[in-house]
Design a protein around this nucleic acid. Structure first.
Length: 272
DNA sequence: AATCACCTCAACCGCCGTATT
DNA sequence: GAATACGGCGGTTGAGGTGAT
């Protein structure tokens, strides 16, 4: 996410009230909100509370639909809306919950305090689906879902492990699936780290189960660090990950994976 | 500096379920 | 029960930003 000022960039810098103010038929405005409109909405909700959006739209003096007011408040103006890039933990929760619930964005958002369904939806479309496009795999396909589970999620866990000493936010994982709640049974850093390792190991165990069940791949996993992607080497008809961790593969913020996949070599995977 | 292509994300649209009349 | 209003949700769009050429 851009900074606050940047993310406000689509809010027009000044209000106007004539024909150039974006009002259409019925005098309703459309398009970016002005700072004055934001102020009006914030003050009205501070006085009257949120809800009853059509009434709010009429009484507040805003030339907006109730729906537009609601959306602006919930997705942007509400004080607890969190700004900034999704953390690896949040991304992990999204990937996990999406695998369970699909495009139930609002339901997923309930497990990510401060994040909106719109933001999660945008993340999925711009980051996750983009990867599917690059790989020429249908993002709804079983193959892609398995790649998320077997490669992307472990890498996020690794990233979390690298970051965790100072900033692990266990409450997010606690809000995710029961599988992840194992991470949250202790407040001690050592215990949390151990539990993260447990989750990482479990997910990579799933990798082994999955690929071996496909009978299409042999791979070497260093059992001493089985969820360390440095030691996670896939070898077979296609080479998804070639062993050493190329730092260029890390994309700060977005994590993933240009260069991580050998797209050409994925043709057989796609064909499953 | 200008142009182009691509990306991000705020905002809108249409549909659906529920509440109210 | 029918009609209408409202709120919420997921899908989609397009303006603005940014990097490449």
């Amino acid at each position: 996410m851009p900074s606050s000022s940047s993310s406000l960039s689509k809010t027009t810098s000044s209000s106007s009230s004539s024909d150039d103010d974006g009002t259409g038929a019925g005098g309703l405005r459309r398009g970016p909100w002005t700072a004055e409109e934001d102020t009006l909405l914030i003050h009205y909700i501070a006085s009257h509370g949120e809800g009853r959006w059509n009434l709010l739209a009429k009484r507040s003096g805003l030339k907006r639909t109730g729906k537009s007011c609601r959306l602006r408040w919930l997705n942007y103006l509400k004080p607890d809306v969190k700004r900034g890039n999704l953390t690896p933990q949040e991304q992990l929760v999204i990937l996990d919950l999406h695998s369970k619930w699909g495009n139930r964005w609002s339901k997923i958002a309930q497990h990510l305090p401060g994040r909106t369904d719109n933001e999660i939806k945008n993340y999925w479309r711009t980051r996750v689906q983009k990867q599917a496009r690059h790989l020429k795999i249908d993002s709804n396909s079983t193959q892609f879902q398995e790649l998320i589970r077997c490669v992307w999620m472990p890498r996020l866990i690794q990233k979390i492990q690298l970051d965790q000493s100072s900033s692990w936010d266990s409450s997010l994982i606690n809000s995710a699936s029961p599988d992840h709640q194992v991470l949250c049974n202790s407040s001690s850093a050592a215990a949390v780290a151990a539990q993260q390792e447990e989750l990482g190991a479990r997910i990579l165990d799933q990798n082994v189960d999955f690929f071996q069940s496909q009978g299409e791949i042999n791979y070497n996993v260093d059992n001493n660090s089985s969820y360390d992607m440095d030691a996670f080497s896939l070898q077979g008809p296609f080479d998804i990950y070639n062993g050493s961790l190329d730092q260029n593969n890390w994309i700060e913020g977005d994590e993933f994976i240009y260069g991580l996949w050998n797209v050409d070599d994925l043709s057989q995977f796609r064909g499953r």
